[in-house]
Amino acid sequence: MKGRLNMHTLWKGALSFGLVHLPIKMHAATEDKDITMRQIHRTCGSPISLLKSCTQCNQDIVTQDLVKGYEYQKNQYILFDKEELDQLLPELNKEIKIMDFVNIDEIDPIYFQKTYYLSPDNRADRSYTLLMEALKTTSKIGICKVSIRSKSSLGAIRVVNNCLVLETLYYFDEIRPIQDVPNVLINPVVDPKELAMAQSIVQLLSAEFEPTKYQDDYRNQLNDAINKKIQGEQIQYTVIQQKNNVVDLMTALQASIEALNNSTSKKTIKPKGKRKKEQTA
């Protein structure tokens, strides 16, 4: 299986299930599209450097002089060198070992962190394809552990378009209990009429998921503003008025349904000009 793009390899190791050992490479499946901004001194227009300094020694510190420290009491730290922390991670064998196979619908989405693509390495196509087909035909995913960039994570191996994918997961004790969320009712009561109207809104807004339909409006507008500033153009900003009117729930539901029905009916009506052309054709 050869990729069309030369993806950067983040991690090289092996994936194992049972006694099967599969050499793999790991690649980032997503990329951050956020626009990076520097802090600039308004007076002279120069970028500000963020230096690491020691308040005790009153001097700047280079990276080589830094170690990790855990504050076990106020202003009392135990220190760890990078080598000591690396020894605690199962990083040396570079192996992702599948421990269990489970149904994906058993995992709540709250556990998912980040996605990575896995590609076969060193002519491991046969084992790679075997695991992929086994997961597809059994509708299972593999639960594993993996160490990436000095962090140990739980993981899930699944198949996406004939590619093995690693989803890093939060550990159970990293998920905050829902019981700690304030103002959540234990036994909520819903008015049947309001529920029926809410269900109608859900039905009217129901559609198939199309990822390309959703855009980052803020990033697009910021890009446009950057280009205009580069060209020396003046930018006109729209002042957004805050809505202070309070509407009761039933009125809001009814108004939502009417607005959605009107929007739907406008989409289904053909323009008159187009209809005349069809008649004369």
Rank of each mutant, 00 (worst) to 15 (best):
T280M: 08
G13K: 01
S263I: 00
E233V: 04
W11E: 00
S46R: 10
L50P: 00
R275I: 15
K114T: 14
H41C: 10
N6M: 11
Q64A: 14
K94E: 13
W11G: 01
V102E: 04
K145A: 07
T137G: 00
S265G: 00
H8A: 10
N220W: 00
I175Q: 01
S16A: 15
T264V: 07
N161T: 09
L88Y: 03
D60T: 15
N161P: 02
A207D: 14
Y72V: 12
D81I: 05
Y218A: 07
S147R: 01
N161I: 07
A207M: 10
S153K: 06
N183Q: 13
C163F: 08
T238F: 07
D60K: 10
V62F: 12
T137S: 12
D32T: 04
Q254L: 10
C163E: 09
I61M: 05
L185R: 04
V62T: 15
E174R: 01
R126I: 09
A134P: 02
H8D: 11
I61G: 07
Y116K: 02
L205N: 13
L204N: 04
A124L: 02
R38P: 10
Y214V: 09
K68V: 09
Q236L: 12
G13A: 04
R4T: 08
N161L: 09
K274S: 11
D217L: 13
D60L: 11
L79I: 13
R149V: 06
I48F: 11
N262Q: 15
K2H: 12
L85R: 04
M250D: 06
G18S: 05
L50S: 12
T43Q: 13
P109Y: 05
A259M: 06
N244Q: 13
Q254A: 12
M26R: 03
S206P: 04
I24A: 02
K270S: 07
K272G: 05
L195A: 11
V67R: 08
E106R: 07
I143S: 01
L92M: 09
N244I: 12
K136M: 10
D100T: 11
N93L: 15
S256I: 03
I61T: 03
T55A: 14
A281H: 07
K82E: 15
S46M: 07
A156W: 01
K266T: 09
C44H: 12
Y117C: 05
L15I: 05
Q73G: 07
L130V: 02
I257G: 02
